[in-house]
Amino acid sequence: IIKEMFSDYGIEIISSKKDGDAISKGDVLLELEGNARKILLLERTALNLLMRMSGVATITNRIVKKVHDVNPKIRVAGTRKTAPALQKYDKLAISIGGGDPHRSALDDMILIKDNHIAVVDSVKKALELAKENNSFSKKIEIEVESTEDAIIACENGADIVMFDNMSPDEAQDTLNALEENDLRKDVLIEISGGITEDNILDYAPLDVDIISLGSITHQASSLNFSLDMD
């Protein structure tokens, strides 16, 4: 993205790192040649975006490696808690870091949240309404906060069941109940809510498909880059 930005202004790219490359302090990421006025015009925008995306990719990559050391089958996903106007770049940075970008827009799938359930007063009714108003091509995901609701969701056709703000022990008990009722075969299980880099390894041993966390975008620290003219 940064290379394209400079190229559009006629700046020649002499050399560059690739997306996903590991970097160390003092590395040269990009060498440019061209009109100094144009380079300086783009400097701050390019650096801000590069630092932001590299920060998101770095924390994502670090968390993915930690989780996969324990459980290589789990997908580590982001959420829609992205920086205003930067969602496209935050999602791409998650992918570059080895994570799953999850949804980008509300119409990517149907996600039934706690407030939706509260409006219709039951998990079953929420799923029925979603199916009535949904194309076959879109998956339906629903948030649940209890073992009972997880069972109801699986029995009533949810494609993805998200354990919302469950502790590791609560999640394990719910997984056991789904196994005992033979409800795991056609359902993906996602865990989300209150998960950070500090506690994600408490969830990594669980037999789930996805762990999603907003902290890889809303708590990411930008890396520190600078542009030096020669």
Rank of each mutant, 00 (worst) to 15 (best):
D164K: 05
M162K: 01
N224V: 12
R52P: 01
F225E: 01
V64T: 05
L92A: 12
A83V: 12
K18T: 13
Y89G: 11
M5C: 06
L183V: 03
K66E: 14
G157H: 07
T79E: 05
K17Y: 13
N224M: 03
E141A: 09
S221E: 06
D182K: 14
E190W: 03
L175E: 04
V67C: 03
V123N: 06
A22R: 08
R75G: 10
K65V: 02
D108G: 11
V76W: 00
R44I: 06
K38G: 04
I200M: 02
D173I: 01
A85I: 10
V64R: 01
Y9H: 13
A36M: 10
A150D: 03
S146N: 02
I1W: 11
D209R: 00
G10Y: 00
G214D: 00
I13K: 09
S7F: 00
M51E: 11
D19W: 11
I1A: 09
T58N: 04
D108R: 04
N165T: 09
S54V: 04
L40E: 12
L175I: 15
V56N: 09
S135V: 00
T174Y: 03
D164F: 05
I1P: 15
D198V: 07
I112S: 14
Y203Q: 10
G20V: 14
E190C: 00
L227S: 08
H68N: 12
E43W: 03
T217R: 02
A77F: 04
D173R: 11
N224E: 09
Y89P: 09
Y9Q: 15
N165M: 05
S212R: 01
L40S: 10
T58A: 15
V120W: 11
L49H: 09
I191T: 01
N199Q: 05
H68F: 04
M162Q: 07
L178G: 03
L206H: 08
G10V: 01
D100G: 12
E148C: 00
N181H: 10
E12F: 06
N35V: 05
A177F: 00
H68W: 14
E155L: 08
I189V: 10
D107Q: 11
P205A: 06
V70F: 06
E170Q: 14
H116M: 06
L32P: 12
N71S: 14
L223S: 02
K124Q: 11
N199G: 08
K3I: 04
V56K: 02
K91V: 14
H102Y: 12
D90E: 10
D107W: 04
D100M: 11
G99W: 02
I39Q: 14
D202A: 10
K88A: 12
L42I: 04
T60I: 06
M162Y: 05
